[in-house]
């Protein structure tokens, strides 16, 4: 039923960062539209997309802010880290320079987000194995050293794209369950919709709606 996807319990805010041309917008497009955008124009400033996913039976709405990688937008995109629950840090496995810049992106992410923000490292363009310039092991080690989650994806084939977004959400959800993420605090990047709705009617409605949505 049409109302189904709207009944989400949480909103998680994500931000996608990384050098120009690593495929940030394509990843977002692949995730939200399940399509590969072949001639993706440069992002101007920031763009945003949403999708509702399910983690541990909870419907979660992801609000994903895709930032421009161009240096001239750095001052603008910097302002969007505020209040992100998840940060997807993307590099291009076929271009070593994008990998080398990760530490600067990571510094930004650490400084500008809250301490509980889940940072996920994504090596994009894994379909271009022949042109690989950064090995999986090397990036994995970098991720481990910095306590990041890591996957290699392909926005073109869609390989691992879902997992990257979902794993991040799972980790955030886990943080909420652990109590390490305080929902009541402003700008935690997570907004909770009360599980027990206020009005009596909603309670009446809830079971039937769920039945329909399954």
């Amino acid at each position: 039923m049409a109302a189904g996807p709207y009944n989400y319990s949480y909103i998680f805010k994500y931000i996608i960062i990384g050098d120009m041309g690593v495929g940030k917008s394509c990843l977002l497009h692949q995730f939200t539209e399940k399509k590969f955008m072949a001639d993706c124009p440069h992002t101007i400033g920031v763009e945003f997309g949403t999708r509702i996913i399910e983690v541990s039976g909870q419907k979660i709405k992801l609000q994903i802010w895709d930032t421009a990688g161009q240096e001239r937008f750095r001052a603008v995109t910097r302002s969007y880290y505020r209040g992100a629950a998840g940060a997807l840090m993307v590099y291009d496995i076929t271009r070593r320079s994008t990998y080398n810049h990760l530490s600067s992106w990571l510094t930004d992410a650490r400084n500008l987000t809250n301490p509980n923000t889940v940072i996920f490292l994504i090596g994009n363009k894994s379909d271009l194995e022949a042109q690989r310039d950064v090995t999986y092991e090397e990036a994995k080690q970098f991720a481990d050293e910095n306590g990041l989650m890591f996957l290699e994806c392909s926005a073109k084939t869609g390989d691992n794209v879902e997992d990257a977004f979902l794993d991040t959400a799972k980790k955030i959800y886990q943080n909420i369950q652990d109590g390490s993420l305080d929902l009541n605090a402003a700008e935690s990047g997570v907004q909770h919709k009360p599980a027990t709705p206020r009005s009596a009617i909603s309670t009446d409605q809830a079971p039937s709606k769920e039945g329909c949505a399954c």
Binding site: A75, R82, G83, N114, D182, A186, E187, S188
Partner: peptide, 24 residues
């Protein structure tokens, strides 16, 4: 809230803390 309180435990810091940096 974003201007004066910022995130949980003050990270990200409240926006007004950057008022010395007009662009930021």
């Amino acid at each position: 809230d974003a201007l004066t309180r910022g995130g949980p435990g003050g990270t990200p810091r409240p926006i007004e803390l950057y008022s010395h940096d007009p662009l930021r």
